[in-house]
Design a binder for these strands. Structure first.
Length: 593
RNA sequence: GGAGCCGUAGUUCAGUCGGUUAGAACGCUGGCCUGUCAAGCCAGAGGUCGCGGGUUCGAGUCCCGUCGGCUCCGCCA
């Protein structure tokens, strides 16, 4: 007995044929005289009928004995269902298989949850992931992921990229996230680390003359998790030689068009480009969601003369006053406003002021501190209409941007201003290479210190490092960051100079980054690239809202928020003998902790 | 490292102010049933209320601890 068709593939065209399908018993409906089985495989459902008159007593009897999730083979003739008996809700609903023979290939325990159940406890799903993955929605996610990966490979291959694997066992570097460690048995007491990304290796490939590289690379970081963050995730990692920033952006735009096409989403290119400064000014975020307006409005000049302490103090200490004009249609209650104030404080604001714009005039407890002409100026500057709610934050620019940016996003969703059918791609470019640490006053890299400054800014490295713009770029869609990349600094002397700005002298640089500097000193081409968050891309392709992406839905075997695999039961304690073998002498006993 | 929410039948949940024998739906088991596709009807089984301790005459309910899941802050390219 061999399978002739996939369950979901049968159509009226096969009527009259004797077929054999194999799959899981999705449901059984026993009418006594006749029994209906829905058989499910990856491709869908097909109805199999156990009818003693038409298919024989044996098949009917076999159908009686099967239970949910039994694995069965059904042989029989494909027939048209009778008039009015079709099921338009499934693709195979026009036909059914009259079973002549039903064989149980394997029995099954009662599943811990029902396959077609809507809400299933996440813990149960993770514990029994192999059952969870049988659900059509999860099958669809896995298929989508596969297609997206194929589209990416095909596109990049067509653009002359080579897929090259890089090692999983690497040398620890002090930069970035915490590494996962792997003890080396052959040299006791020494360790490899798992890659946070193939960054170093791909730049080395550029120096090696590979010209264009890509990889669907697993990246591992030992940091705390979130719904959109797993200890291991996948990047579409790519790097290109002899290119400028625009070449990389254009390539990624083409890649996004190819990948989003697999979900039938047309993406217009080129994508809008926004400087980091403008993004922070207008949206208070370096990954703005441009699906709605409600931009931040700078009111520092408008309220410059006002004696209201909160505003005046902020301005006097070099801060700013900015606001949002929220088209609330009078919907924000006092409680809502209190919640927003608490929300603002959570992100570092000392408070949040508000003015309600009613048909009768303005309403707020701060009006008594604001002269009427300034009130009018505020309304004009913010374009306020009756029903709007004006929100104000006064603080350091970074706090103002962060708090108002978050308020804007929260209210945009809360008030339904976001057009969820859109996919607003945009590039955020022109990031400063450095920023000043607010507490220590030290100059630090904003992203990382390995990107190339804009050519014209190189002299500023010594005179005014904070004014140096890097050739760094982030790809954003609907407020979610999809990738980050840069044109790399491939000139050793320039790299040393950049490191010097952040307080790393030549000796320390050689010690910490000597490998990269060595690679570059043997003739590295100018190069640049990106790493794209593949899990996040697939999540958005699958229809998830960008502001609440859950990548666990598009990963076959994800970890919980404490990094556990509930199906395998790991991490787990290792046998002392095995520890000794790799040179680990002492460990914490989790039971004794 | 910090904060919050959740944990009751196989599953999803309800359980009032601390008070008799902890309920519903779905699922499951058995019976009936020849056109269902969320099949239907009848009957039945199914519970250490995550775990440990405390308060109380009495705890699913209150308190403390602990384990697990989730969310957020910190962290993270």
């Amino acid at each position: 007995m061999r399978r002739t068709h996939r369950c979901g593939s049968l159509r009226a065209a096969q009527v009259g044929e004797t077929v054999c399908v194999m799959g899981w018993v999705h449901s059984r409906r026993d009418h006594g005289g006749v029994i209906f089985l829905d058989i499910r495989d990856r491709t869908g459902l097909v109805q199999v009928v156990g009818d003693p008159q038409r298919g024989g007593a044996a098949a009917h009897q076999a159908a009686e004995g099967v239970r949910a999730e039994y694995v069965v083979a059904a042989v029989g003739e494909v027939v048209h269902r009778g008039e009015g008996l079709g099921n338009p809700r499934i693709a195979t609903g026009e036909i059914e298989i009259v079973a002549r023979e039903i064989t149980v290939l394997n029995t099954a325990l009662h599943p811990p949850f029902e396959i077609d159940q809507e809400e299933i406890n996440l813990e149960q799903r993770m514990r029994y992931r192999y059952i969870d993955l049988r659900r059509p929605v999860m099958q669809a996610n896995l298929e989508l992921r596969h297609k997206a990966a194929m589209a990416a490979r095909q596109y990049l291959s067509s653009q002359d990229f080579l897929e090259i694997e890089t090692p999983l066992l690497l040398k620890a570097t002090p930069e970035g996230a915490r590494d996962f460690l792997v003890p080396c048995r052959l040299v006791p007491g020494t360790y490899y680390v798992l890659p946070q990304s193939p960054q170093l290796m791909k730049q080395t490939l550029m120096a090696a003359g590979c010209d264009r590289y890509f990889q669907l690379a697993r990246c591992l970081r030992d940091e705390d998790l979130r719904a959109d963050r797993q200890p291991e995730h996948t990047q579409i990692d790519l790097e290109m030689s002899f290119v400028e920033q625009d070449d990389v952006l254009t390539t990624v735009e083409g890649l996004m068009q190819a990948v989003f096409a697999v979900a039938g989403i047309a993406v217009a290119a080129p994508f809008p480009r926004l400087s980091y400064g403008e993004a922070m000014e207008r949206y208070g975020s370096d990954k703005p969601d441009t699906r709605f307006g409600m931009e931040l409005i700078d009111l520092s000049a408008t309220v410059a003369s006002v004696e209201f302490r909160v505003f005046a103090d902020a301005l006097a200490s070099g801060g700013q006053v900015k606001g949002l004009c929220v088209p609330a249609k009078g919907q924000l209650s006092r409680k809502d406003l209190d919640d927003l104030i608490a929300f603002s404080k959570q992100f570092g604001a000392k408070g949040m002021a508000w003015i309600a714009v009613d048909a009768e005039g303005l309403r707020s407890s701060i009006l008594k501190f604001i002269p009427e002409d300034v009130q009018r100026a505020l309304v004009a500057k913010m374009g306020a209409q009756p029903g709007d709610m004006l929100l104000f934050v006064a603080d350091r620019p970074k706090v103002v941007a962060d708090v108002l940016g978050r308020l804007r996003l929260r209210l945009g969703h809360q008030l339904g201003l976001v057009d969820k059918s859109r996919h607003n791609f945009l590039w955020v470019i022109d990031f400063p290479l450095f920023e000043k640490n607010a507490e220590s006053g030290a100059i630090e890299p904003m992203h990382h210190p390995f990107s190339m400054p804009r050519a014209a800014d190189i002299p500023l490295l010594e005179s005014d490092p904070l004014a140096v713009t890097a050739q760094l770029y982030d790809l954003v869609v609907n407020g979610a960051e999809l990738c980050s990349g840069s044109i790399r600094c491939h000139i050793p002397d320039l790299q040393l100079k950049i490191l010097e700005v952040i307080g790393i002298d030549r000796a320390e640089a050689l010690e910490r980054f000597g490998f990269l500097l060595e690679v570059f000193s043997y003739g590295a081409p100018p190069h640049g690239g990106v790493g794209l968050g593949f899990d996040r891309i697939v999540a958005i392709l699958s229809g998830q809202e960008a502001s609440e992406v859950d990548i666990r839905e598009v990963i076959a075997f994800p970890k919980t928020s404490t990094g556990r695999d509930l199906m395998l039961g790991c991490p787990s304690v290792i046998d002392p003998q095995q520890l000794k073998e790799v040179g680990i002498l002492k460990t914490v006993d989790p039971a004794a902790e």
